[in-house]
Amino acid sequence: MTDAVRDIIEVRGLCNRFGDFVVHENLDLQVRQGEIIGVVGGSGSGKSVLMRSILGLNRPQGGSIEVIGRNALSPDPRNRHYIEQNTGVLFQNGALFSSLNVLENVLVPLKEHSTLPMQLMTELAMVKIQLAGLEPEAAFKFPAELSGGMRKRAGIARALAMDAPLLFLDEPTAGLDPISAATFDQLILTIQKALNLTVFLITHDLDTLYTICDRVAVIADRKVLVNAPIDHVAAFDHPWIQEYFHGPRGRAAQFAQEKL
């Protein structure tokens, strides 16, 4: 196996049910180390449930999940702990702690999981805040004082705090204006390149898919229908995929990409 195709996330035969409602049935997904994978699907198709299952926030009824070579479903807390230390998550609305300012928010994981001197932790947190594209002055602002875009940047800074090699982003560009969304896409790409991250990205944003994703996984009919580079996915014969990529918005995004 060459370096490019080693799997950092491996989901096999995943089953998720809520009562009678089947979300996933025999879902398989592989994420390679160092890639940006975009996960798309209709509302309610189970994108977030998949992410929550990988993160251990939701216990699936069946299947196996391996993250960074560890079994994510094993009862051994050391496995869970290892995965938690090696993943960073940006929730949809940032999920910043509202009673702490940005710097303190970024310091939370550092303080809890390391014994570094305070001054160094502050330096590291400031690097992450600026890597995420925030001004140093924003460090002392509280989440309530930030705009939606800044809150997401602060959320990314916190997700990066521990230098985790695996980053989960839940709809990073949702709720941003198109210009901010495009800047944010570039930010993700820059950070991913600089820190050599693997990014698991849930999105509805076709522009994001076209500009930064190496591969796109489509969830429909309770499983991952296809997981491939976007041109390959767009040509896949399935009504939802055709509607998604070749509807008015899909064509516009594709056209914009070709013009670049």
Binding site: M126, V127, K128, L131, P136, E137, A139, F140, A194, L195
Partner: peptide, 20 residues
């Protein structure tokens, strides 16, 4: 070469927080 980008990004991001 593959570490250059990261070093450059960190150099560009290492302003200390403004004094309160």
């Amino acid at each position: 070469p593959e570490h250059q980008a990261l070093l450059a990004a960190v150099i560009g991001s290492s302003q200390t927080p403004p004094e309160k």
